[in-house]
Each structure stands twice: as C-alpha cells, then as structure tokens.
Design a protein around this nucleic acid. Structure first.
Lengths: 188, 188
DNA sequence: GATGATCTTGAATGATCGTTCCAGATCGAC
DNA sequence: GTCGATCTGGAACGATCATTCAAGATCATC
C-alpha cells in the first residue's frame, strides 16, 4: 500500500562509487553524489543515511565487487600460477581508474573503526583466496616451496596497491605490466 | 628597513606537511594549518599564497626531504644491494606515518598539471638514483643481470608505495618487513 | 476512487569553508 | 624617534558545505 522505490539502490550506489573513487570522501560533495547517483537528495538521505554511511556502503559494495573479480581471475587458467597472473593482469588493465580501496586507506588509514570494520573482512577473504592459490601453485612447482603462502599473498596485495598507485600517477600499460611481471618473479 | 620575518618558512611548512599527511588536501582546514604551522593566518597567506599553493609547496618540500633520505640510505652499506635493503628498511620503519607523496597521488592522480610538475622531477631523481644502484648491484652479482635497471627501480618504488599503503592500513612491523624481503627477492 | 508511502524539486537551515580586511603591537633600519 | 614592513588576532566576507523542511506529483494497493 505504498509507492515502490523507482530506483535500484545498488545502481545508485554505483554512481556514488564513481564519485568517491575520483574525489575521495572529503572531495565529494552532496551535489556531485546526487547527480551521479541519478536520484533526488531526499531519496539519498532516506535510503543511505548521511554522507559517511553512504561512503561506507560504497566502499563495501566496491570491495565486494572488486574482491569477486580478483577471485574469479584467480581461479581462471589451467595452473594456479596462471590464475595469479590473470589477477595481476586484470589489475593492470583497470589501473587507469582510481581504486576506492586504496583511496579510502590513504584518506583515513585505520583511524575510523567503523570503516576498518568494512575493510577487514574484505581484506581477509581476498588474502585467504590468494594464499590458497599460492599453495596450489607450490604443489604445481610454479612457486618456491619455501615461501610462506600468507606472506606471498600479502606481498601480492601490496603489489596490487603499488600498481594502482603507479597507474593513478600516470604510468602507462607497459610500465604497469612490467611491475606485475616483477611481482610474479618474486614468487619463483 | 622593515621588521624581519620572525618565523622560519621551512619550519612552518613542516607543520603544514604534518597536517596534509594526516588529512590530505581536502581534509585539511585553514584552522588546522594555522595551528600546526604556529603562525598567524595573515602570515600564512602572505607567505604561501593560498591553500593550494601551500599544498604544492608542502609536497615539494616533503618530496625533497624524503628523496634525500631514500638516496642517503641507498648509498649506505658496503655493497649496493645493502643500500637498496637499507632504503626499504627505512621505509618499513617509517611506514606508521602517512606518506604525503602517496597521499597526493591517490587524492589527485595526474589530474592537476601544476601538481604533476612538482612530482615529476622528484620521481625522476629517485628513479635514476635507484636504477644506478641497481646497476652497481648487478656488477656485484647481487642482482640478476638480465633485469632492466629502470624497470627494477620502478618496481622498488611501487613496492615502497605498497609498503606504505599497507602500513597506513594498520599492518605491523613484521608484515612490512616481510613485504620488503619479498621485494628484494624479486631482484635475485 | 481513496490511501499513503515514495518520488522530485526547490528553498532554507546552520555550520564551516577559504580568504580578506582591519587594528594594534612589534621591531629593525634610517 | 620615526618609518615601514611584519607580526598577532579578531571580525567579517561570500561561498559552499551537509542536511532538512515543505509541497506537489506519482502510483501500487485496498
């Protein structure tokens, strides 16, 4: 007995994600968000609360989508090492667009507990998936057996961040590919 | 025939650097800056222009100091590879504090030409110094001879950024040391 | 057709933003 | 001592900020 919502909350959230990726939290204005999300101001506040809660929702959705894409790439390829390479290749190909995960860590670090609560499970899931794949690759003989899989996973995540910072700074495809190759090299 | 400046511009700039490191450009207010710089509002605008020019000055000074520290560590140690290790070790030890270089790239990317003009020479100087040291290490037989020194330098810079992002995200000393070790491993 | 929740839109809120103006105190050079 | 540039600090500027209020339109349900 009421008018149903006309917009899709996730679609609107995707618009907010685009703004936050490009401008960060502090650099994003409510007007930018309303325009990019394609909804009214009132709908924004009714649906997502205030700007900070919207930001956290955006980081969560972005992180889940990005994490899924990473893990999907990770599981592709015949050998585990191919999956790891595919994951890095995907990062290189999308490194021209700013990363909301890296951006939010740079902007807030670990200073906001409620934001850290969003990051933590996403990071853990990704790290576990990568570590599992590293173990597979070790069984295949493609990754050095004396390497700690968790340390290797954290190294790969740090290099994903490094590639994205480099891309955000203007590095070209060739330079980023070289970074990915060097990261893989450390696993041999 | 005038009253001389009572404060040291570089000391004041260091105060601004502290604020920008922690809060970024958009997150830093004029009031924060005035307080941290220890000077009056009027002196701030007279000496440094507006907030954006102050930010660029802060990035330049920070980058010069940080670059010098990197290069000094790079040149320490008997062997070139020891210098490279010392540089990474220094990054690990200081990774609990946010990096203004990484922060400004994440916040603005390459979208502001006048900021890119500040970054470019700093990045080039550091990359050249690292590449030269990599060549030395190759002569010593401590770095694989088939590695492109410039690619290795960019890889090390990307890993410095990765370590700092990880540190900003709350990673501990042990985890960061592991990242540095893995980066060095890629050079062998 | 009536109901009522949601929509859109524009105006208004008080707060804070970066910046400037101003007045009075300070102090080195003439 | 006088001059003039700089200091400090507060008041004020218009602009923009996030957020809320208000009014009218829309539309699925009863």
């Amino acid at each position: 007995m009421a008018r149903p919502r006309e917009f899709d909350a996730d679609t609107a959230l995707d618009g907010a994600i685009g703004v936050f990726r490009e401008h960060g939290f502090e650099g994003a204005s409510a007007e930018m968000l309303v325009k990019a999300m394609g909804i009214g101001r009132q709908s924004l506040y009714d649906t997502f609360g205030d700007k900070w809660r919207l930001y956290r929702s955006a980081v969560r959705r972005y992180g889940m989508g990005e994490g899924s894409a990473h893990i999907e790439a990770l599981r592709s390829g015949a050998r585990a090492i191919d999956g790891i390479g595919a994951m890095l290749r995907r990062v290189v190909e999308t490194a021209d667009q700013p990363c909301l995960g890296v951006g939010s860590i740079c902007e807030f670090g670990a200073s906001r507990p409620d934001l850290a609560e969003v990051h933590a499970p996403l990071a853990r899931t990704l790290r576990d998936a990568i570590a599992a794949r590293v173990r597979d690759a070790q069984r295949d003989g493609d990754v050095a057996a004396n390497l700690d899989p968790e340390a290797a996973a954290e190294f790969l995540i740090a290099n994903i961040a490094g590639i994205r910072v480099a891309g955000r700074g203007g590095a070209g495809r060739a330079a980023l590919t070289s970074l990915a190759d060097m990261a893989l090299r450390a696993l041999r």
